[in-house]
């Protein structure tokens, strides 16, 4: 039993290693994708902070939105991961993984954390740029504890794994690249706009606040903001529990439906 568990953990790590090796041969992808969140910060962020329309308490708007931009970068990488899975299915790559002696749960978890590999690479780039900008270039005041900044990485892993889980769930249900792409796009905007990434939840009408409360990204942004801006981690256990809960449910659902990918 224990050796089987060890083997499955090793399987998960191997699938993640596969993604890391893919990424190593394709740096350009990260650079291109990093542009978008920075544009958000520089364009949307600076315009919004000019007018001060969004109430962000003691901190400047740019400071408020910086963790949101990081979360967005992570979300956008992971929410389309299901398409890669459909791609892998259309080539023989997925078949090869499915006939290997690995449980469906390790396969799905491996694929979720594969998205995290890309998300981490992305997050490091975006975070570095935000830190550089915070040194007197833009009005961004980060919480000045480097350990807190480092702790954003596990949060990034968790957010991206959940987002990839959602994407993989769509991939197992819809099974074609076009439809998974479509649903990814359909989902990205509500996830992003009903989270606390761009403005406080209290700023939304009540029914959207309700939606924000079931939105996993809200909890991710909350963790990131606690680590990067306020240093207040009183909500962290709940945030963490919600994200892990989402991941467990998604992984179980995906593994149950995974067989559909090949039919």
């Amino acid at each position: 039993m224990l050796s089987r568990l060890k083997r499955e953990i090793y399987n998960i790590l191997t699938i993640v290693e596969l993604e890391a090796r893919r990424l190593r041969h394709d740096y350009a992808d990260i650079a291109v994708r990093s542009a978008q969140p920075i544009v958000w910060l520089l364009v949307f962020g600076t315009i919004m902070s000019q007018r001060a329309v969004i109430p962000t308490g003691d901190v400047s708007y740019l400071t408020f939105v910086a963790p949101g931009v990081l979360a967005q970068a992570v979300l956008f990488v992971a929410i389309f991961f299901g398409i890669m899975l459909v791609w892998d299915r259309d080539s023989g790559n997925l078949a090869k993984l499915l006939v290997a002696p690995a449980s469906r749960i390790s396969l799905v978890l491996g694929k979720c954390f594969s998205a995290s590999v890309r998300a981490i690479a992305q997050a490091v780039v975006v975070l570095t740029i935000i830190i550089i900008l915070s040194f007197g270039i833009l009005d961004i005041q980060l919480f000045s504890n480097p350990i807190y900044i480092l702790l954003t990485i596990p949060v990034v892993i968790l957010i991206s794994a959940v987002a990839a889980g959602i994407s993989i769930l769509f991939a197992t249900i819809f099974r074609t690249r076009e439809r998974v792409m479509g649903f990814g796009q359909l989902l990205t905007l509500p996830l992003f706009f009903t989270s606390s990434a761009l403005y406080p939840i209290t700023w939304m009408p009540w029914y959207l606040q309700w939606f924000a409360k079931i939105n996993p990204l809200t909890y991710g942004v909350d963790l990131l903001r606690g680590l990067m801006v306020t240093g207040d981690l009183s909500g962290a256990p709940l945030d963490f529990a919600v994200l892990v809960g989402y991941l467990i449910v998604l992984v179980l659902a995906c593994s149950a439906l995974f067989r559909r990918m090949m039919e």
Binding site: T14, R21, R22, H25, G92, N93, A100, P101
Partner: peptide, 22 residues
């Protein structure tokens, strides 16, 4: 269909397979 990962080297493909089989 082609099942080797086109983005990896031949050696990397084999290594990943070897690891998946323990």
């Amino acid at each position: 269909d082609v099942s080797s990962d086109a983005a990896l080297t031949g050696y990397e493909n084999l290594l990943i397979s070897a690891k998946l089989y323990g």
